[in-house]
Design a protein around this nucleic acid. Structure first.
Lengths: 240, 240
DNA sequence: CGGCTAGTTGAAGACTGTCAAAGCCTGTGG
DNA sequence: CCACAGGCTTTGACAGTCTTCAACTAGCCG
């Protein structure tokens, strides 16, 4: 009888995405510290520039130091799916650590700076590095699962709200205001990530604005009634 | 100009899920070999038994040696999402490697056997172990992304077909027939994983059977026209 | 046999996608 | 400085897929 009916200590829903984000921020903050004294190759990138694309030979791991990025997978018949938006402290290329080639596309959404990490070298010379990488990989899995849960069980409004909260939490972790969000992606990219059309994203934002919950001005979004948003998240029961 | 407009070597669509499965099979096959001479604690489990639940203190990593399992995350308001079905060679608990508590529920869908891996010990004493774990983590991320792509861009029929192909590929990797699938999960669980309702799953299976593409008898499914299924996968363009 | 779980099928409705048109913003070039 | 082109966003009308609700069947076990 292996742990069959033991107590089920539930991680709260909101904390699922939020906590992992915070956790990640902390962990990579210390990853930055860990690498402070290391002579790293730095790269500046500009908007719409691909850092790498799926299939290209993998030669480095990138730590985002500034800027906003997206990673995406593409099927052979052209279907694209954005797997995440990456900002300071996130790593690009983690998912292909065990492969000779990158497994996704990584694109800058605005100008930014990347630190190039020589994985093999760091792994061999820096004792805590491997452990950090493992934690980041596991964290990415939990984050993905959190989004799979959200996309699979929530309606359009709730998905957008969840996204806004997640973004706010991550911004806050980086020292920015959690109520004043400057989006760097298009409606289409946002919709792609949330498995919605760009029109639906627009409609949801308009709807939430009409209710006075947020203020939308293009890609600038202000959260005006956090509590009201959470109510929407709760009340409108699942569509499943 | 960092790798901006370089050639884009595309991994084929079908290989996205299939290849990762095969890759995983190989890797964990050697993981089994790697552990052959290790004295591992073995556990037998029965259907509907929880191996662990989210929030419980993590004390081991489990390697599936026999049986069929599901892992799921649950939100505080009760929404559940099955994150994957696990069989021989898969690891349970990988996603919480960096945490003191498990991050998901793991449940046996039939009787099975698990090998309990003492992570810290193996990591310290077995040189190749850490590397394998890293590869498994990265593989899980790619697999999740593949499903996020499928669920976000495919219609109901295509999702079910993709699932059948994935399952067939995994069975084949374990030495079973890829055309004779014995499902171990309910329609509800299948639907949950594919972000569909159980009714929709049933209807899709009936529809595919009516077209002579598969033969359905409860949880026993025979793939009768693989080529026809692939055609459906291609032709019915995305719903996005 | 009765109760239970799992699966199938039908009809109606909701949510979101699709298609279309128009407005907006920005950068460029005359 | 203004005009224009192009990409991005917004909004509307309509259609389609999937969900919801409900009834019914089948298999299993006390």
């Amino acid at each position: 009888m292996l742990l069959d009916s033991a107590a089920h200590v539930e991680p709260s829903n909101d904390s699922f995405l939020a906590a992992t984000s915070n956790g990640r921020a902390q962990q990579t903050r210390s990853l930055e510290q860990l690498l402070q004294s290391w002579p790293l190759q730095r790269r500046r990138v500009h908007a719409k520039q691909y850092i790498f694309r799926a299939g290209q030979p993998r030669h480095a791991l990138y730590l985002v130091h500034a800027g906003f990025f997206k990673t995406a997978v593409i099927s052979e018949d052209g279907r694209e799916k954005i797997t995440g938006f990456r900002m300071r402290g996130d790593l690009l290329g983690l998912d292909a650590l065990d492969m000779p080639a990158y497994a996704c596309d990584a694109m800058a959404l605005d100008t930014g700076e990347l630190w190039e990490l020589p994985y093999a070298q760091l792994r061999d010379e820096l004792p805590q590095f491997q452990e950090r990488i493992t934690a980041l990989l596991a964290g990415e899995i939990r984050r993905d699962w959190g989004w799979m849960l959200a996309l699979g069980t929530l309606g359009a409004d709730q998905r957008v709200i969840t996204f806004l909260f997640d973004l706010a939490s991550r911004f806050e972790g980086l020292g920015f205001s959690p109520n004043h969000l400057q989006l760097r992606m298009t409606r289409a990219e946002l919709g792609n990530f949330l498995s919605l059309t760009l029109e639906t994203v627009t409609r949801v934002l308009s709807r939430l604005q009409a209710r006075g919950l947020i203020a939308v001005a293009g890609r600038e979004i202000r959260i005006q009634d956090r509590h009201g948003l959470q109510t929407v998240l709760r009340d409108s029961a699942s569509c499943h």
